[in-house]
Design a binder for these strands. Sequence first.
RNA 1: GCUGGCGUAGCUCAAUGGUAGAGCAGCGCAUUUGUAAUGCGCCGGUUGGGGGUUCAAUUCCCUUCGCCAGCUCCA
Length: 596
Amino acid sequence: MKLNENDHLYRARHSLSHLLASAVKELYPQAQLGIGPPVDTGFYYDFVFPEPVAADTLLPALESKMKDLVKRKIKFERFELPGDEALKKLQAANEPYKVELCREYIAAGEAISFYRSGDFTDMCEGPHIETTGEIPKNSFALDTLAGAYWRGDEKNVMMTRIYGLAFDTAEELELFKKRRALAMERDHRKLGKQMQIFHIAEEVGKGLPLWLPNGTVLRDELEKLAQEAEFRYGYKRVATPHITRGLLYEISGHLEHYKESMYPPMMLDDEAYYMKPMNCPHHHMIYREIVRSYRDLPLRLAEYGSVYRYEKSGELAGLLRVRGMTMNDAHLYVTADQVREETRKVMELHKYYYDLFGLENYWLRLSVHDLAKDKFVDNIASWEQTVGILREVLKELGIPYSEVAGEAAFYGPKVDFQVTNVVGREETASTNQLDFTSAERFDLTYIDHEGHQQRPYIIHRAPLGTHERFISFLIEHYGGAFPTWLAPVQVVIVPVAPALFDFAYKLRDQLLALMIRVEVDDSGDSFNKKIRNAATSKAPNVLIVGQREAQEDKVTHRRYGVTEQTTLPFAEFLSWIQDEIRLRRNSKPVNPLDKM
RNA sequence: GCUGGCGUAGCUCAAUGGUAGAGCAGCGCAUUUGUAAUGCGCCGGUUGGGGGUUCAAUUCCCUUCGCCAGCUCCA
């Protein structure tokens, strides 16, 4: 939810950032100011402190000073200064970062405005609240302290950013904190450990997850899903090696544009071999292997391909950001006439997947080039043409999207599906690119009706993203309570007593014969303990079998998170669960974590 | 990579400049149970690694590794 700058909360948050700066200046008159805008959950302000600071003592001290300022009902007063006076004032105050901004405002011919609140004055556009009396007691709190580069550029100094939380009321602040604590409970790293989905071993390496048996079930189910969907959409599956000669990446341009993200080469017979960071060049080689006719197009090559990228250590996070990943990749080689239709079908496939999982909280980003940045292929006409095509397709489909400059791939614009994970971090779940560069680089052609050579367009698409990232979202989306078709253990059979073990084994064998993942709890635990273990394991289906059931070949069926249970003939259960799995029903059980 | 923080048993967490403790999990024995923890016992730690200060370090200092938040980058 984005606030408008005239919203009271927006202005209150912005004003609180000034109070924070004011408190900092009181404690450290030498501290220099960066910027201090409002954000989704509050505000922050960046500082350069004259000495190292410690969060555990600094934040409470600043917070209590801010509370004092709020109590004093301080007025926010705006005034403007001519450029040279503003500059002088900031220079006199020893605010080099403000001076830098001020110079730019002057160059842009903008008015230079200041806000005075009590003893503190900051160059700022506003708007602000009238007085701090408008800020309810306990509706804000300082949160964390972190580093941030000046103007977001890693070549600049690192400042100290102090984040604060701020809401309309104290109750909303408390609610936010509670929700955040609850969200941590479904963090995929925590559930991934608890549910034995993946493990990142120090000995194996950072960002290189080991998939445990339960996690591998999730991967296998996603791959099955993709194989079926891609079959229906006319894709052909291919497979390619994990390492490749440098030559291929010279052709593709990866070594030119992407080298810092690639694992360094290994030398074999005086030649450099690289771990592959992307599958596309390999698919292009497959395309090029024979002469293609327009009759072959669209040619859709699909592969769940593993790639390795050298992400900076601080960027790694659980399964969300890793160094080795397997992606739901495919490349569509199409004629100019087919681009729109094929792009549309790719979007349709996305919708099918997202509906299947019940993923609703996402938005589309049309990621375009920014020729001011040197990472992009320099060909304005092609950028404009391909961006235009994507705009048209999205418009035709009536899908809302936002256009963001500088987020494109180096070889073409992208349509990214942006989702927010459970702890509020926004990530790209899947990405689709329209590539106008590679066909030429790889000299890919097809013969048209008239026997002339033409360049195909290439659509790169990965609707299910990478297993790593997509599964991290699924874990959090479901809070670990997967629908039956995805669940690592689909059925747990709990016999009431050891005398019933044989009956339970008989049911198990029938389920196993149908490829249903089932376990019998034949441990020495008490019956109550078994019920509890089955429930806490988040198994979607629990079958309780006792004497009563055994006599009539029935089972008592409990769904995860549902208290009512039904006793039904086992044959009926079998047909129900087979449908449940075959149709991949997203009968999302009530998850206790969804309550808030 | 950068800034800040955190590393105690498989997990969750105690404790202290003077020999490290609990619950859960695991294992064993007993119990054979009809809807969310049966009882008893056992095992489990070079307090992330290395170095230093000290009579003595898990505690203080340095260093290194890992993790967390943010920045940068990104599927």
